[in-house]
């Protein structure tokens, strides 16, 4: 039985076996290679995606468990605002402004984790960033990841302030 889910806003019917990790279904069946393989045991976060808006490490999520759910990958992060045209997520803009990536391999996962964090904590404290951002970056981009998250949170706060 194919597993049917929504991926980046579109309905998708997966043919891979039920026990296939979502990561490999995304990469090999849909060709969404922005989501990366790092460890296979949910230890590094390179494969992070959103499932119904919640952060998940897709290397350890069986395909069967996402039936009927909405999945967002890095390729769809920019469109989450519901716009019809591709518009980058503010974090993606900040990642460039702060020149965050080095090798870049972990950054899809880092961005997905940061985006999930900002949904629940629009102005996260350093402790909240510490707790949420547990993805591994071997290049050592952590200081800039922190900066970029704070920068976006600051913008959000400014906007809120303007409205108020």
């Amino acid at each position: 039985m194919p597993v049917i889910a929504r991926v980046n806003g579109e309905s998708v019917s997966f043919n891979a076996d039920d026990d296939t990790p979502l990561l490999w279904a995304l990469r090999e069946e849909l060709g969404l290679t922005g989501t990366k393989f790092g460890c296979g045991i949910a230890a590094c976060g390179a494969c992070s995606v959103h499932i119904d808006g919640v952060i998940a490490r897709s290397c350890s999520v069986p395909l069967a468990s996402v039936a009927g759910k909405a999945i967002t990958t890095i390729e769809g992060l920019g469109n989450q605002g519901g716009g019809s045209e591709a518009a980058p997520h503010p974090l993606q803009v900040a990642w460039i402004a702060h020149q965050v990536p080095q090798c870049g391999y972990c950054q899809s996962g880092q961005l997905m984790a940061a985006a999930a964090l900002l949904k629940t904590a629009p102005r996260p404290s350093d402790a909240e960033i510490d707790a949420a951002m547990t993805n591994i970056c071997r290049c050592g981009t952590y200081p800039r990841i922190r900066e970029a998250i704070h920068a976006v949170a600051g913008q959000a706060a400014d906007q809120t302030g303007a409205v108020a």
Partner: peptide, 21 residues
């Protein structure tokens, strides 16, 4: 100056060896 490789590394479009299909 901004690094030339960074924009493709924030939207999943950068293709690494493991991404070849």
């Amino acid at each position: 100056v901004d690094r030339l490789d960074i924009p493709a590394k924030v939207n999943g479009s950068a293709r690494y060896g493991i991404d070849v299909t």
